[in-house]
């Protein structure tokens, strides 16, 4: 009897907590707080509109992964590395926040939707220095140099210090 009463009490308490909390109010339909993935690390516009990405990202990724690996088509816009580029964030729970990784961003919605992915069984999800966009202190210098090299390539400007 005591157990049953205990369960009821716990349930009541939980319900109250949900009802009074703002998150609970937002997610009145499902009873679970809606996910709020971190804002992109950089960029304002994803490769497709947000609504499309929410529904279709897995299709894009899966399609392109086959094209990249099996057919050798590289540089298309739906790569996982592109996701990392913008959406990898520093999370205090991962490596003390010293690195940016994609995991927290993906986890937010995937935990909510109870969809498990095994991308990270092989992909590290970590932003790496050889990509632009890493702006953690240790990566800033390199990125700045990369950007400048890139602009120069675009503008065909003579290298700094070049003598004509």
């Amino acid at each position: 009897m005591n157990t049953v009463r205990g369960i009821f009490a716990a349930l009541l308490l939980a319900l109250t907590a949900v009802a009074v909390s703002p998150a609970g109010a937002l997610a009145a339909d499902s009873g679970v707080p809606v996910p709020s993935p971190a804002k992109a690390f950089k960029g304002e516009q994803c490769v497709e509109p947000v609504e499309t990405m929410r529904r279709e990202h897995m299709v894009y990724l899966k399609h392109q992964r086959d094209e990249t690996l099996r057919d050798g088509i590289r540089g298309q816009k739906y790569g996982l590395n592109e996701c990392i580029d913008c959406h990898a964030t520093a999370d205090p729970s991962i490596a003390g926040g010293k690195i940016r990784t994609l995991k927290p961003f993906c986890k937010e919605c995937h935990a909510y939707a109870a969809v498990s992915i095994d991308c990270f069984a092989c992909h590290s999800g970590k932003a790496q220095n050889d990509k632009t966009g890493s702006l953690l202190p240790n990566e800033k210098e390199e990125m700045a140099d990369d950007l400048i090299r890139m602009v120069k390539a675009h503008t065909n400007a003579p290298a700094i210090g070049d003598k004509k």
């Binding site: 960029g43 050798g72 088509i73 590289r74 540089g75 816009k77 990509k131």
Partner: peptide, 20 residues
Amino acid sequence: SVAPGIRLISTAEAAVSGPA
């Protein structure tokens, strides 16, 4: 914008290569 018409961050614009 460091110069007119140049967007610095544009990974998606990298050239597509392949297929093998």
